[in-house]
Amino acid sequence: MKASSNIAKFLAISLMLVCVRAGAATLNAEVVSSKGKPVRDAVVFAVPADPAVLQGIQAQKQVDVDQVDKEFIPYVTAVYRGTDVNFPNSDKIRHHVYSFSEAKQFEIPLYTGAPEKPIHFDKPGEVALGCNIHDWMKAYVFVCESPFFTTTDADGKASLTDLPAGQYQVRVWHPTLRGKPEDTGQKVSLEADSAPQIVQFTIREKKLWKPWRAPTSTTGGYR
C-alpha cells in the first residue's frame, strides 16, 4: 500500500517536472542604481499570479553561508521559504553568528566548524546577519516567497530559467534598497518556449555602513 502510494507520488512529481520543462520560459533581469551603475547581489524573484503554480515545489534541502577570513561568504544568499541554512565556519577561530531581523531571530554562540543544526528560514523577508566578535562581519539572507529567484552578477544581470508559463510579478531586493520589494513589482506574462523576456529595475539606494575593520592609529572598538 505504502509502496504504491510512493510510486504514485513519484509519477506525479515527474509529470509535473516534465510539464514545467516542456512549457518553460526565461526571464532576463538587469538591476541598476539610480545613478545607472550595475547593482551586484540583488535578488530578483518572480511571484506567480496563480498560487497553484507553487504547489508541490519544495525548498532546497540545504544552503551554506560560510565564514572566511572573518567575513561571511556570500554577502547575499537568496532562499525559498522553508529552506535550512547552514553556517559552516571555515576560519580556524570562533564566530558568534546572530540576527535580530523580524523575518528570523537566532543566535549561534561561539563555534568552530559546522554548527550542530542548520537554521530554518520560514518567513519571507530580509535577515541581516552579524557576528558578535567581529562587528564588521555583515551579510544577508533574503527569504523569498517564491521558489523562482536568482541574484545578479557584477554587471547587475541575472537570469531566471525554467519558469512555468503564466503571469508573474517580478520584484527585486537588495540590502541597500530604499522601500519594500513589493514596491518594485513589474507584471510580466510569460509564454511557453518564447524568446526570453527582459525586465529592468532601477532601484533607489540607501547608504549602508558597516563597522570599521582596517587597522587605525587609535586602537579602539571591540575586537
Partner: peptide, 14 residues
C-alpha cells in the same frame, strides 16, 4: 586628530 584610509581589510594608511 587623525584619519585612516583603508587599503583593504588588513591594511591602512593612517
Amino acid at each position: 586628530l587623525s584619519g585612516s584610509y583603508a587599503l583593504g581589510p588588513h591594511t591602512a594608511i593612517n
